[in-house]
Design a protein around this nucleic acid. Structure first.
Lengths: 330, 330
DNA sequence: AGTTTATGTGTAATCGATTCCACACTAAAA
DNA sequence: TTTTAGTGTGGAATCGATTACACATAAACT
């Protein structure tokens, strides 16, 4: 790897001058500039980002922590982030927390040591440990997907969406609505969505069979198992199921179809997320679109603002949503 | 950001000693070790990776260049890469080439300047410009998805798969087989798969209507448009379509279903890639699984080998494939 | 006893850039 | 003619770690 010093020697100038040439800063005569450029090109010199970052504190890197790498939501978010960061010359360094709190914290620390200029966390919880770690971060930080009070975040109106979707089912004539959710430690997806469902049922004085409510993992198979359990163990079988994600909903549909229930006639299904699968599964799944790309873009923009303006105050962005009506509800 | 020097001062020792403590290297007495650790913890000191990398040349970062971030293939590959890299303490820095050669080259250079320890390129072509750039890279390099001769790569047996799939259709009684492909600059997906189809048709002395062959983009809409054009402009309508990716195949199915053709009775469809969509679309799409995760894992392992052993010779890995028979062919 | 050997710690050089400062020169303004 | 301002360049400090080397002390051998 050729260094600035060697380039300087080859061009018979000082390192300072070479630096001025490649950064287009300060005064450099045209002759010298040309000569240096030539040598830079000939030797395919590229300055060391580490040396640069050490000196300037600008690494042009943003750390992104995801719960899992290989999910539709994650890749949409990263895509959105990249869309605004790439044109600004920033790069993304990835980490996957595998849904473990201690990994979220571990990578927060690691990113700090890498001197990333900003951190975007696709959070899965709002635990105290996490908040503490985030609070004494001096690097610009933005969370996606959870409302981390006191920090900047981009999230969705999970409670309202759940209410809306439940209301939608009720308006369609359903009274017996089952629920497939996830662990409530995930405040946004687990707790808020469940509360939206519960509150709405209560608002309409609709009773809930205790076997109608399942909470577990994000796996499609969990949707399937839950549906099975609901159909087999409930005192009265529900006429609709509200699943907290599309995958869960599709898992439920899988079970229902296998056992020859007619969707939406025997039982209606709704999900959340507007995954591509939801569009192609049969019948098409009624769901709500959260626009994950936009969440990524907004988060990236927030980070950028914070980097450029150290005084930039925390901002909370709640993205709106869009109901996509298809054929899994009638 | 607290530095090693400040920790040293607080602990009344030299920076060298602090370094020894945090790296567990050299001799340090127990008392001093304890004292330093305490101060490190209290001040939440994390060493600067830039300073470290500048000195040691080890950044513990691998650069990954993808054609697009938000595709199922890409995220599976990244996932595979991460699976083997993360336990080794490596992180992934991402770049998206947006299918543009000049971006592939741009990021190759950028990664060089970032002193990443290795580069994995999910290539979209085998052009001379790219090869040249790759050839004079001194950093460990592995390509995924294209056979970059002279370099290490992990790829799929595209030609054989295309032959196999075409043969499969023929064996099922099809003689009139249309083809939806992509630009042949993409050697692996564009050229090789098309050649496999063409050669097999020839082997069986089956003639091809010139309107049966379409090549264009990877977009699902292109599959749809192609199918439309095939059905409307061919002299004799085909009884089967071989699409070079699942998305293209599903696009074709979309058109067919909209126009009430029966799949597989009126027309059979096959794709490649084993996307999740292919499983849930109706009828289920017959396709072949390339195991992208494994490709990612293998590539990461190759990079690791190259990093650990500078003499490690280039290796070419061709992953095998698995036919998944579903209901889009009878 | 004298001599190794193991243990413990500090000094200073180093990695490869950026940038402040000093200095030199030229040209225009006073 | 002297000032002043604008150009152009180099020297050297600096960023924050690691590590070779020197040196000191204590323990273990002859």
């Amino acid at each position: 790897m050729i260094t600035i010093k060697e380039i300087a020697k080859l061009a018979n100038v000082s390192g300072a001058t070479v630096s001025r040439v490649i950064n287009n800063s300060g005064y450099v005569s045209d002759g010298v500039r040309q000569k240096v450029m030539k040598i830079v090109d000939e030797n395919k010199y590229v300055p060391s980002e580490h040396a640069k970052a050490l000196r300037t504190k600008h690494s042009k890197v943003i750390g992104v922590i995801l719960p899992r790498i290989s999910t539709e939501t994650a890749s949409r978010i990263v895509n959105g982030i990249n869309e605004v960061l790439a044109p600004e010359g920033y790069q993304i360094i990835l980490a996957s927390s595998d849904l473990e709190l201690r990994n979220e914290i571990k990578y927060l620390k690691l990113f700090k040591s890498r001197q990333v200029e900003g951190i975007i966390l696709n959070a899965t919880n709002t635990s105290k440990e996490l908040m503490e770690e985030v609070d004494d971060l001096t690097i610009p930080f933005v969370a996606i997907g959870q409302e981390l009070k006191g920090e900047s975040y981009v999230s969705y109106n999970n409670y309202e969406v759940a209410k809306g979707l439940t209301n939608y089912l009720i308006k369609k004539g359903h009274k017996k609505i089952a629920f497939i959710g996830v662990d409530e430690k995930d405040t946004a997806v687990g707790y808020d969505r469940k509360k939206g469902y519960l509150d709405t049922m209560k608002d309409h004085s609709l009773s809930i069979d205790e076997n109608w409510i399942k909470t577990g993992s994000f796996a499609m198979t969990f949707g399937e198992e839950s549906m099975e359990s609901i159909m087999n163990n409930s005192l009265t079988t529900p006429s609709a199921v509200f699943a907290v994600t599309d995958r869960l909903a599709i898992g439920a549909m899988k079970y229902l179809k296998k056992h020859l229930y007619k969707i939406p006639d025997d039982i209606a299904v709704v999900g959340i997320g507007a995954s591509e699968l939801a569009e192609f599964v049969e019948p098409g799944l009624t769901t709500v679109d959260f626009n994950n790309e936009k969440a990524g873009r907004e988060a990236a923009q927030l980070i950028l603002n914070k980097i450029q303006d150290k005084e930039y105050k925390n901002k909370e962005i709640i993205l709106n949503y869009r109901l996509i009506e298809r054929d899994s509800v009638r």
